[in-house]
């Protein structure tokens, strides 16, 4: 029983990071119907900003977290303005290819500084508690609590504020929203900034939990988070959170109770079956195509 609880805790930690990254994919898709494949690499930049904040700048936990989040938000806005905005009216596939290119560029930009993996110093206490055979580390608590807080905040932002209303309006119909006086460009930029800052927060937490970082770390995690967003129903914010936790749980529990060699095979086969049953994801809804 303790074994199961321990594995569930492991799943919550991994799932909350997937969920944070998945939110970035889903927000951009929701407003632009575009898949921002550079998001995994923005997450990687968040981890490197954590490294810079902790070593070069010598910041403590909260300033370092803000540094990662703001740095990534700025990066997200710059990428949107320089790479995606000129292609807004171009075929969707052009924007997707551009996104892949931006991702590669970010990887190799980081590579220029140093190809060596880096060790991220501890910014958070490494205390842990043993409760009835279950080991709970303070870092695990931090990751889960902070992720959930960020998700609750985002959910409130999108559902209860004017900015959220504007985001939803553009997502519904960009042209009409513009006619109604919504500052479309500014809101799209802000959406990118929010999505990227969540990616930055995820990169920051990830760097603390898995303290060796390298320029390619965002690739696989990015794919997995994208899959989480699709499973939850891409474009749907609560869906992305749910998808992240589902993916984390499936990955950990498959490895926990079946041979770990088959982990990815079984985990992704399960997700595949889920998508066959619910093609729009768990919380996603079909969007009627306008002719």
């Amino acid at each position: 029983m303790a074994y199961l609880f321990q594995q569930i805790l492991n799943a919550l930690q991994l799932g909350s990071i997937y969920a944070l990254i998945a939110l970035g994919y889903t927000m951009v898709y929701g407003i632009m119907t575009m898949i921002n494949f550079a998001h995994g690499d923005i997450f990687m930049v968040g981890a490197f900003l954590c490294f810079v904040a902790a070593t070069v700048l010598g910041l403590s936990f909260i300033p370092a977290l803000l540094f990662s989040m703001l740095g990534c938000a700025l990066l997200g806005v710059v990428i949107e303005r320089l790479a995606y905005k000129p292609l807004r009216e171009a075929p969707r596939v052009s924007a997707v290819i551009t996104a892949l290119g931006v991702g590669l560029m970010l990887e190799h930009l980081t590579l220029v500084f140093s190809p060596y993996p880096r060790h991220v110093p501890a910014l958070w206490s490494s205390a842990s508690w043993h409760v009835g055979g279950v080991t709970l580390s303070s870092l695990q608590v931090l990751i889960i609590v902070l992720s959930v807080l960020l998700m609750v905040f985002l959910d409130w932002l999108v559902r209860r504020t004017m900015l959220g209303l504007a985001i939803r309006a553009i997502s519904w119909d960009r042209t009409v929203a513009a006619i109604m006086g919504v500052p479309v460009d500014a809101v799209i930029s802000l959406t990118f900034a929010i999505g990227a800052s969540l990616g930055g927060a995820a990169g920051f937490l990830y760097a603390l939990a898995y303290p060796v970082i390298d320029p390619y770390m965002g690739v696989i995690v990015g794919w997995k988070a994208f899959i989480a967003a699709v499973v939850g129903g891409i474009g749907n914010i609560r869906g992305a959170m749910l998808g992240g936790f589902i993916l984390g749980a499936v990955e950990i529990l498959v490895a926990a109770f079946l041979p770990s060699t088959y982990r990815d095979l079984i985990a992704f086969a399960l997700l595949f079956i889920l998508l066959i049953c619910k093609p729009y994801g768990i919380l996603g809804q079909p969007r009627p195509q306008k002719v």
Partner: peptide, 20 residues
Amino acid sequence: FETYTTGDRDFSAQLTKIKE
């Protein structure tokens, strides 16, 4: 006798199993 795949960074499931 547990495995992971290149690029994995979370080994918590396998390590919990090994500890057990």
